[in-house]
Design a protein around this nucleic acid. Sequence first.
RNA 1: GGAGAGGUGCUGGAGUGGCCGAACAGGGCUGACUGCUAAUCAGUUUCACCCCAAAAGGGUGACCGGGGUUCGAAUCCCCGCCUCUCCGCCA
Length: 429
Amino acid sequence: MHDLGYFREHLAEFEKMAADRGVAIDFAAFRAIDQERRERITAAERLKAQRNKASEEIPRLKKAGQDASALLGEMKQVSEEIKRADERISELDARLADFMLTVPNRPHSSVPVGHDAAANVEVRRWGAPPKFDFKPRPHWEIAEAAGILDFQRAVKITGARFAVYRGLGARLERALAAFFLDTHAANGYTEILPPFIVNSQTLTGVGQLPKFAADMFHLEGTDLWLTPTSEAELTSYYRDETVDADLLPIKMCAWTACFRSEAGAAGKDTRGLKRQHQFQKVEMFKFTHPDRSYDELESLVANAEALLQKLGLHHRVVQLCTGDMGFASSKTYDIEVWLPSANEFMEISSCSNTEAFQARRSGIRFKPKTGKSEFVHTLNGSGLAVGRTWLAIIENYQHADGSVQIPQALQSYLGTDRIPGGTGFSVPG
RNA sequence: GGAGAGGUGCUGGAGUGGCCGAACAGGGCUGACUGCUAAUCAGUUUCACCCCAAAAGGGUGACCGGGGUUCGAAUCCCCGCCUCUCCGCCA
């Protein structure tokens, strides 16, 4: 219940947040429950003080050889009353905790107010769309013809929204992940290889639970889930710890598979790699001092953009408005890469400062030189979504003959400068 | 998966029903003292919640987590989680 004081103190700001994000939250119910809880605690604690006094009195009476049975009987009554009161208090505690866990983070004052993506603001663009003297094809056509991607057999193995990468396709995925991780390492991020399965507490700490249970894969009969993003693992790395202030900022990166049930996305992006149940992502993550977190957000975005620049991919940076931001975020920049076949931009990275939202839920503090320990700020950003980068390369570097040119930065990882085109539209056996 | 041992404060480690928020040692902090460092001496050292306008003060709870027994639980009982040792199995 250590969030309670913080919550009460900022209630007005939370109400403003709900309006800005366009979500309905019953704050009146919160106030009523909070009020009753306090009254019950006061009453219960009075009884407990009485019980404690009697607990000193009883052995004294016994030692003096006096009869304590009257007091014993009275205390039995009191104990039962205490038990009933405590049960009601835990019930109220649970309701307050549930309530607080479903309230999203407060947006930073610099975030544009709006209820949907229409209110997002483009911050900058880099590069230009590639020019084709033929009609550019979508990546699934090119890739299946080239024999580097196979959806048909993925259906056999698992089901819809899964993919099999093959030959240079598989190697391109691996090359991208390695290129990303090596670049991050050079920028001072420590590489982490975490578990891909996480427990409920880890997911609650980042804000995925309890609200978004339906968007994840749950392992039946356990408290475990397939991770939807390594942001969860990286946050929980320091869960319930107080880190040394001198260590901040702590920068980490991780390559993992990510799993999303994509509930509610039926019929959306059903062709191609864009929206899969399983995809790979390299994540960048920072634990920072509260005074530095917005500077660190800018450099985090710059680190992600630099990857696209080295790959020569046209992209833009968009600042999300209040209504389009994620549950845990105070401020988010999306990076969107150009997609020739669709003639539009596609999200390839999302970089957020959650301020102390996740740190509070996860109990991550730092101890300053003087004074009390404080919550750190946590930042996360894709650097980058590997599958989406893969498809962006296939589409942006395609040739009329179906072959794909490989950007310079990737050639040593892939061991070739081009993926040969295929003639048919089905993957060979 | 089977058998056993165990989980106490910043750390090590006592504590088997009331005198334990917790001995003792170490560490940290404050002060004193000694050219400096070191040593020595004295003091101090958790967090959450409730009452109180606030401060001062008072109170409640917390010895892995959750239940139970009892007037009273770190201590007894049950369930769970985790760690260690041995055996089995396995990439």
